[in-house]
Design a protein around this nucleic acid. Sequence first.
DNA 1: TTGTAAGCGTTATCAG
DNA 2: CTGATAACGCTTACAA
Lengths: 347, 347
Amino acid sequence: MAIKGRITLRDVAADAGVSVTTASFVLNDQDYAIAVRTQQRVREAAERLGYRPHSNARALATGRTQRLGIVLSSPEVLVSPGAYHAKVLFGIMAAAPLINYNLILHSASYPDWRYLYGDITSGVADGVMLIGRHYNDELTDALLDNHFPTVCVSYNTHHPECISVDCDNAAGINTAVEYLKNLGHRSIGMLIDAYDGIRSWDEERLASFQVSTARAGVRGAAYRVPVEYCGGCGDSGFLRNLLLNDRSETGFIVGSEVLARQVEQIALECGVQVPNELSVISINSTEVSENAVVPITSLWQPLNEIGAAAVNLLNDIISGRGHTNHHIRFEMRLDVRESCAPGPDPY
Amino acid sequence: MAIKGRITLRDVAADAGVSVTTASFVLNDQDYAIAVRTQQRVREAAERLGYRPHSNARALATGRTQRLGIVLSSPEVLVSPGAYHAKVLFGIMAAAPLINYNLILHSASYPDWRYLYGDITSGVADGVMLIGRHYNDELTDALLDNHFPTVCVSYNTHHPECISVDCDNAAGINTAVEYLKNLGHRSIGMLIDAYDGIRSWDEERLASFQVSTARAGVRGAAYRVPVEYCGGCGDSGFLRNLLLNDRSETGFIVGSEVLARQVEQIALECGVQVPNELSVISINSTEVSENAVVPITSLWQPLNEIGAAAVNLLNDIISGRGHTNHHIRFEMRLDVRESCAPGPDPY
DNA sequence: TTGTAAGCGTTATCAG
DNA sequence: CTGATAACGCTTACAA
């Protein structure tokens, strides 16, 4: 079934009085020494007829689609507070056209990862960026096993060929710990959302937290908070107990902004003053932290740069270019706001 | 250049000991009365070899890609306050897979609309959704002129074949006007961002504002505010003058949430109390209005439904199904918050 | 300098 | 019931 009214290369060639080969050569700038007059005729014909190369035909012939796939963990993440994914997507969208790629948004809501796998590897795109998936993600590993060009964004897996782009969680947490220590805090807590599966970023942060607190010579305890991540609501009993019972921690590093706001909120309800009686640092530093009742000091990460880096890295992989660094990390920056105060042991 | 290691239909057919034709029939459920045993052999072979139909080859043969294009006005809109586009995109992303479409995110940053036009019509997708473009958009009209399946989302043009999905701006503004009138306001102002080109939604709102105020028997004046839309900053002289000089308006309907917050902010600075001395209604009703110092009463629109409707409408067009309604409109809802108070003439 | 022709992986027409 | 075979639009050896 012909595509309705499409102008093909044949039409252009006929109009210019040359063969399709010649027309193809000219239009692809593969100047196999074509007479200048012929070139002009071809270009003129293409222009006049409004010729557009057919994306799929070209892809079929060359084996390259000039398209990059994107997989979000779910459609919802696009509209979640802080807009993490939207910001990464922004970086991707800005970077892709610069190196001639279109983007494919793979359906994020397949029941089974195998469908997604089939979709991704159906030849619709030359490679794929997976965003914020689980540590032990079968999809990721299947893709990597089959050497499909893949870049993990904001997470990674244990797969030996895993290539990822993310912020430098380890260094970031260290920054936060040092910051609290220098403020005089001697016992610091880390609060992480309790998900089903473990996330790579949580693991990196927890590991760094242990190392950093030890190195800094302060007490460090990590807690997994059983919160339903539904935008702020959830069971707050855990936090309430944590704050009201005698705790040694005078400062908390909180893995998500929404959770950090909850902490602040519950502290308020419990009569625990932020920052005077409790310092809080969140991670992400978006408007969520900024607009909190007491604006929250937060670790910022360059999400658009992360997106852009993912695009370029994926392009390297597709082009078979050597990528020296399998795990690109971007520095985090501590945005100091008003949620931290000197601890019990200031200099 | 063969696609590396890809299992083709030929491989499956060979493995099952049938022709590609037969294999194709089986795998596409076009049960041209194929022997059940043969079917099983084919399916089994496909499964075992991990066969995936090649997207582009299929597209080339059928003339259908099962992909829908999306054009955002710019990458930035994804991360703008209120996340209008992200929410529409969410609706689109949720709806598309339900009717077996993948999504193409066209590069929103082409210098010239002609490139975009070429991209869109290159056969990469079966149709396109354009989001929030100008009233006199050359791209839109070129697409419509050439009968490329197109749906305008959140805007429309004068093109006779224009098909659009949007909120019902006219009814929404009427709701807001009536609300203020019933509160006792007798002079209402409308504030619109002053862009270069005119936007269809602004035109619809302004027109409705004139009609609605007249019908309600209140005074209605519209102002275009010269604000650089850069997330909250900008020249505020205009608003300051408007608020401080003797004005008759006791209530304003403001076309954007960011602008509405500015109005509130500047009123605060000028010592004009919101809502006691000035009532404000914004449009969009997101966290931007919700988190204002005085939470702003706002007209909400179902952005995800709009996105979903666009997907289904586009599918109808592509399938050649008759679409009775060229301009689908969704009702707006007034989210009452704290920015409106009784006017000078309450009942 | 240009043209012929063989693919790329499907689908679909038409015989057998 | 099944199998050749010709598209689909383009790229690219290879020939002329």
